[in-house]
């Protein structure tokens, strides 16, 4: 071999194609009912020696058997490509967007995503499933499953069940798959404490030591305050209006707020503290305050970037887990 270097960490991964071994088939309640009817007709046919009643009974039985294959086929060969979910706050429902790959198959009808296995036999079905949906042949589609996210941290996508009763509702076929996906669950933003006082930024701000120019977004003008850097003064405006104003750039935050667990010591437990911090982070974001955070050994510089907010929330979500 010329190329002895294999791509790193290419581990065999479960192929999510739903094949023969992975598909379970059982009659539905209606299917059992149908089978009983079929048997009753057969008994009647025997009693009355009625050839056509025999024929009806056998035809119904044959339809039942064919329905097994048809229902099976409706699911076989479908692949689950995985799932993904946007972060949610604890107490909300995580929306796992499952991607189903039907590129190899024909049109599939009336699929349902369930979070628990369907009950075979005569028991009633639990009501926690998506509405049935159809999939075009050769298509890739997404279907959403809502999973309750009770507590912060990482919510692993539960084992899902895809089920179909097409075409007759006599038979249900289902298969399990466990998409390798999890959903980041931020702490529920809770707590009554008001946002701590923010600090006005010092002139020693920019860690980079570079003047914000070029690609930094111009944010607005604000009256000059003692301590504002001279290079931020809008000289042209001064020349026109005789007013000392400074340009504000989104990067160059003036208001900075440092949050830490110290500030929420009063709260009873860690979860409540993290919830309070999460709420502050959101509140600060609404007010345009750059938030930094000290969380254990982690230190996050204040920033305005909306992605920064997610970084903070994520840190809160994963703290000490």
């Amino acid at each position: 071999m010329n190329h002895t270097l294999a791509p790193s960490s290419v581990l065999p991964r479960a192929d999510h194609a739903l094949d023969r071994r992975h598909i379970y088939v059982l009659p539905t309640r209606g299917g059992f009912f149908f089978a009983v009817v079929c048997l009753l007709v057969l008994l009647g046919a025997m009693n009355y020696n009625n050839a056509m009643a025999y024929a009806v009974s056998f035809l119904l039985g044959a339809i039942f058997v064919i329905a097994i294959g048809e229902t099976w086929r409706n699911l076989a060969g479908l692949r689950c490509l995985g799932a993904a979910a946007d972060p949610v706050f604890a107490g909300q429902k995580a929306r796992f967007r499952v991607t189903l790959d039907n590129r190899a198959g024909r049109e599939r009808m009336q699929l349902e995503l369930l979070m628990s296995p369907p009950r075979g036999g005569l028991r009633r079905q639990p009501r926690q499933h998506t509405q049935p949906f159809d999939v075009d042949g050769g298509a890739i589609i997404h279907a959403d499953v809502m999973v309750p996210a009770p507590s912060r941290g990482r919510l692993t996508c539960p084992r899902l069940c895809i089920r179909t009763r097409f075409p007759l509702g006599l038979i249900q076929a289902w298969a399990y798959f466990s998409p390798v996906a999890d959903c980041l669950v931020y702490p529920a933003p809770k707590g009554d404490s008001t946002l701590p006082e923010s600090m006005q930024s010092a002139s020693t701000t920019a860690q980079s030591g570079v003047v914000q120019t070029g690609n930094n977004d111009f944010f607005g003008l604000r009256g000059y305050q003692r301590g504002d850097p001279l290079r931020a003064v809008a000289w042209k405006t001064l020349a026109r209006n005789d007013q000392m104003v400074v340009k504000r750039f989104t990067d160059a935050a003036d208001e900075r707020l440092w949050l830490s667990l110290e500030q929420v010591r009063a709260l009873p437990d860690l979860e409540a503290r993290l919830s309070q911090l999460a709420r502050w982070v959101l509140e600060a974001g609404r007010h345009g305050i750059a938030v930094g955070m000290l969380l254990g050994a982690q230190r996050f510089q204040p920033d305005h970037d909306p992605r920064h907010q997610q970084v903070l929330l994520r840190a809160l979500a994963e703290f000490k887990l």
Binding site: M46, Y54, A62, I63, I66, E70
Partner: peptide, 28 residues
Amino acid sequence: FIIVQAIPLAVLAFVFFPRIEGPLWGRP
């Protein structure tokens, strides 16, 4: 599609399913 598949199966059952001389109960 379903019926056409079912008919041969039904015919097979009709021919080979063991027949019992009725009546099983009562008079027809």
